[in-house]
Write a protein that binds this DNA or RNA. Structure first.
Lengths: 203, 203
DNA sequence: CATTTTCTCAATCAAATGATTGATTGATGA
DNA sequence: TCATCAATCAATCATTTGATTGAGAAAATG
């Protein structure tokens, strides 16, 4: 009767499974690209049958949408972990840079998958609905920071906040790519010089 | 004798066919993404049989490499069309911006396909061998321009040429995406303000 | 305990897809 | 005129791949 079945495949709850599936999918998108993403590979990495995967996530389309939502949740959680109230514009900008450093260090796949899904958004409205607002939010954060920084005189007065925000997010995203990774710090430094007002006694 | 047979399936030379295949593939990569690229679709768009396509390009891998090489050739041709000898650094930078405007206007798919292949380079050494040097060349052009512009005093003296070059290429590439396209001019303007020295009578 | 719900898998399907085969056509040159 | 070769296609193959079916085990519910 074997009261102790050593190998009992621990039964996960639906949410846990879906999170595990999303994370496996993210890793596989980085490894093989969106064009190399296979439901079988995901199931194998999670350690479940393909049918089980389809039980939790009905279709591949839904699966990619799940990945998109998972990115959004991680981004949101990360932003909430670093409140920016009470900081001046300069400190807020440096805070954003630090958050990006943290993402690159702790969730390196996040930016890469995001960039693939931004491309996909061009052709897939379902994904666009999740990804574009997230990207707009990130750019918007920088726009706000630049606006207040111009007002309080810590940034160059002739900055176009929206344009500068695109430059910053584009440059940071670009530095995610492995062959650009070593350039992250020089690029951040150059961004600071490009927007901060030159103050002799700044630091 | 019917000297004009309206429907004769004109027989193309190998090179012509390969060029046509590369262009069809480029268009399809933009429409469906790398993950949606199908050899059948390419053959259909060129107007040939799949077997004929495989006669000219042995495998799908070779086909993507062909696309990469075709991008490189177009880039090279475009660069040669705009000689930069004799221009000062400021004019050279504006010249580069104009070249980019021209690419966006006349070969809008070029930047998009390039960006997909840069991603692919992370996983495919064959593609990396073609694409990364091309990307490095483009960045290198900006690096040189910044170096000379610092020396002749038209640019901010504390610019890090390599970092600034990455910022510029990343920002321009980002503005290729359709939802960013309207931001191209503001971004270019902001890039100029970020690197040119403020001169009251500059024009 | 009985019933229901949740979760899991082996087996299988149907379509998609990259690639090949074997034959045909037209041009070129000897 | 005939042999050769580049270019082309219809038909077909072998896998891959997203998805389904039907059955069963574990947990929750009553």
């Amino acid at each position: 009767m074997c009261p102790e079945q050593a190998h009992i495949p621990r039964r996960e709850s639906g949410d846990e499974r879906r999170i595990a599936i999303a994370h496996a999918a993210r890793a596989l998108i980085i490894e093989k690209g969106l064009e190399g993403l296979r439901t079988r590979d995901i199931a194998e990495r999670v350690g479940i049958n393909i049918a089980t995967l389809h039980y939790h996530v009905p279709s591949k389309e839904a699966l990619v949408a799940l990945v998109a939502a998972s990115l959004r949740d991680d981004f949101k959680a990360q932003a909430l972990r670093h409140p920016k109230e009470g900081l001046d514009a300069g400190a807020q900008l440096r805070q954003e840079f630090n958050e990006f450093r943290e993402i690159v260090a702790e969730m390196p796949e996040l930016i890469g998958v995001l960039s693939e899904l931004v491309d996909l958004s061009r052709r897939d409205p379902t994904i666009a609905e999740i990804i574009l607002p997230m990207q707009a939010y990130w750019t918007g954060q920088f726009t706000k920071i630049f606006r207040t920084g111009i007002e309080d005189g810590s940034f160059r007065p002739d900055i176009d906040p929206a344009g500068a925000a695109i430059i910053v997010t584009a440059a940071l995203s670009d530095c995610w790519r492995p062959h650009r990774r070593p350039s992250l710090e020089p690029v951040i430094a150059e961004l600071e010089r490009a927007f901060f007002l030159p103050v002799s006694n700044q630091g």
